[in-house]
């Protein structure tokens, strides 16, 4: 089946490897991946900042750029939530069919195996709540042969990123990150994967700042490793 890949603004600007991993995983499960080159950002940053006219313009651009007849898959619960939940508050256009990566894989079918067994903790981005992601990412990761999903404390707690909040309320944001990092370190996973680059950028940055040893990757990178 055909899918359109939305690599997200963070993937486009900072984490190219996550876009590559996502494309590889989708191809490995038999998808014909298209990449609309005019894609930019879903509009969530100005939407959450309260600047709705700017968000509306970006939402309209996204609608023009993607073919409404082909499902969109994105390595981000947050962008998927914006497109499915946020756009409904910005315009009256029909909803776009957009899936977070693991959500798509659970629906479409996925199998993978690791060469070396590993204990993995899964942090689902909080905006997964808006699209009822639940434990989807854990289930997909847990289906990989060689992976043991590790439970950690207070999984419902946010990492503290929150977009512009991470900069404007940096003391609060860092405090929240430390609570999350404490739990992730304590669960003794070999690696931590997240559905969202925002969480990862923030947690990695804070872990390095506090000199904590923790391997944090995007879930797409683990999935790509499992299909090669």
């Amino acid at each position: 089946m055909k899918v359109q890949l939305l690599i997200t603004c963070l993937g486009d600007a900072l984490y190219g490897e996550v876009g590559i991993a996502t494309a590889r995983v989708l191809q490995a499960v038999g998808c014909e991946v298209e990449f609309p080159e005019g894609q930019t950002c879903c509009g969530q940053p100005p939407f959450n900042a309260g600047h709705w006219p700017e968000a509306q313009a970006i939402a309209a651009h996204t609608r023009r750029t993607f073919d409404p007849k082909i499902p969109i898959v994105t390595p981000s619960a947050s962008c998927a939530a914006m497109i499915r939940h946020g756009y409904a508050q910005l315009d009256r256009e029909p909803p776009l069919e957009c899936y977070e990566l693991t959500e798509f894989l659970l629906k479409h079918g996925f199998s993978g195996a690791l060469r070396s067994p590993r204990r993995v903790a899964v942090h689902t981005g909080c905006h997964g709540r808006m699209i009822n992601l639940g434990d989807t990412a854990e289930r997909v990761v847990g289906s990989i042969k060689g992976v043991t999903v590790v439970v950690f404390g207070e999984p419902e707690q946010c990492c503290g990123f929150g977009g512009a909040f991470a900069a404007t309320h940096r003391t609060v944001s860092a405090g929240i990150a430390d609570a999350k990092l404490d739990q992730l370190v304590a669960c003794e996973a070999d690696e931590v994967v997240s559905t969202d680059l925002g969480c990862l950028m923030h947690l990695r940055g804070r872990a390095k700042f506090g000199e904590r040893e923790l391997l944090l990757r995007h879930v797409a990178e683990l999935l790509a490793e499992a299909v090669t």
């Binding site: 690599i7 993937g11 486009d12 590559i20 990695r204 940055g205």
Partner: peptide
């Protein structure tokens, strides 16, 4: 103000479009 409490990420976004 990001870097007051964290390290900044390395910008490696170009990689996807050139790979594609």
């Amino acid at each position: 103000g990001w870097t007051q409490v964290r390290e900044a990420p390395r910008a490696e976004g170009r990689r996807f479009r050139s790979w594609w």
